[in-house]
Design a protein around this nucleic acid. Structure first.
Lengths: 192, 192
DNA sequence: TCCCTAATACGACGGATGTTGCGTTAAGAT
DNA sequence: ATCTTAACGCAACATCCGTCGTATTAGGGA
């Protein structure tokens, strides 16, 4: 989306600039958090000129979107533990880790998504992709005969993961990994 | 918090200015959404001077915080339908209505909470209060012998309401009232 | 090796946003 | 009715943020 098929000149300096900038974004994020993340600071730290940032990335959320896409793992798949409950627990632990990391790129991108539509779209796309892949957990459970065939995957994943997002992102309160596990179990039990 | 015990001069003009300003905030919010909500626009519409807004409310999120507090219903209680499931469905319908309203003050305040710590704190306080009151639903169910005494109220409410927030606020996708009801039922069933 | 031009650097500019000092108005006490 | 001063209006100012025109650098093909 940001680095679309630009037939022109993607290598060399351009690539170097991008990695320098993204590294600076990550550092700034770690030191000052999302609120302290400014174009000028990233420019100063990366040694790349302000105008270049404005031209290539437009906004602060744009930088985060690119960071999100650069870190996107195209080969990601949910772990296979052999049971629905085990799989959901693993999923929840990943979500839990992503949201409690310091700094949490995920948290930052969520914040950014409330500023510009581009960031919101990028996040929506990212999550749609993740939920689609994670649905594999459900189809495996169906294949094992663990749960009925008509099970609504999205609803199930929502039941498992939503409490984590709500507690950690919106309510801004702590949640232990045990509690995260517990919500995975509740979700697994809801479809039996 | 904003209008604390200011012994000085809370009546007359001051009160009029406040209601004018908050009305303007609501109107601007309805027309241009949160992103289009600017101090200058509120000043122009309300007829109150920019400087006054900056002095009393500081920021745009500050305005929303005051709007949230002005609209806070101190007498709010969860509906009593006679069953845990029925009560949770009612709670979820209220949350659903608040999040799908256009414009949604709740959605706007959530967006604001990602900008300033004050807004985040205000929202946290608001929700803490709401969850504490809603816990009544659980204690009533315990009193009826519907569910065991040790039931974790917060976890139960999280299971019921979190999917709504996640779907409508973070995933930014639609959710029908039926689906909201369904998550209430899942939560109710999880403690039986 | 040379050339073309995409990508970046530089500096200046304009607009929006927030601040400050001071004058004016009116709430509330006497 | 009068006085005090909190709250508000006003205008100038400072700053930050994003943009634009132009010069410079370096990728990649000939």
């Amino acid at each position: 989306m940001t680095d679309d098929v630009r037939a022109s000149r993607p290598g060399g300096r351009t690539a170097r600039v991008r990695s320098d900038v993204l590294a600076a974004v990550e550092s700034e994020l770690a030191e000052h958090g999302y609120d302290g993340l400014t174009i000028d600071a990233v420019a100063a730290r990366s040694g790349v000129h302000r105008t270049t940032l404005y031209r290539r990335w437009k906004t602060v959320p744009g930088l985060l979107v690119d960071l999100l896409e650069a870190g996107a793992d195209d080969a990601w798949e949910p772990a296979d533990t052999g049971t629905l409950e085990g799989d959901l627990i693993e999923v929840n632990r990943e979500v839990h880790a992503a949201l409690t990391a310091r700094p949490s790129v995920t948290q930052a991108v969520i914040a950014a998504s409330f500023r510009t539509p581009e960031a919101a779209d990028a996040l929506t796309c990212f999550w749609e992709d993740r939920y689609a892949r994670t649905a594999l957990v459900v189809s495996r459970a169906v294949a094992r005969g663990e749960i009925p065939a008509g099970t609504n995957a999205h609803q199930l994943l929502l039941t498992a993961t939503a409490p984590l997002y709500h507690q950690l992102v919106l309510l801004r309160q702590p949640m232990t990994r045990d509690q995260a596990d517990r919500h995975a179990r509740i979700a697994a039990a809801s479809v039996r």
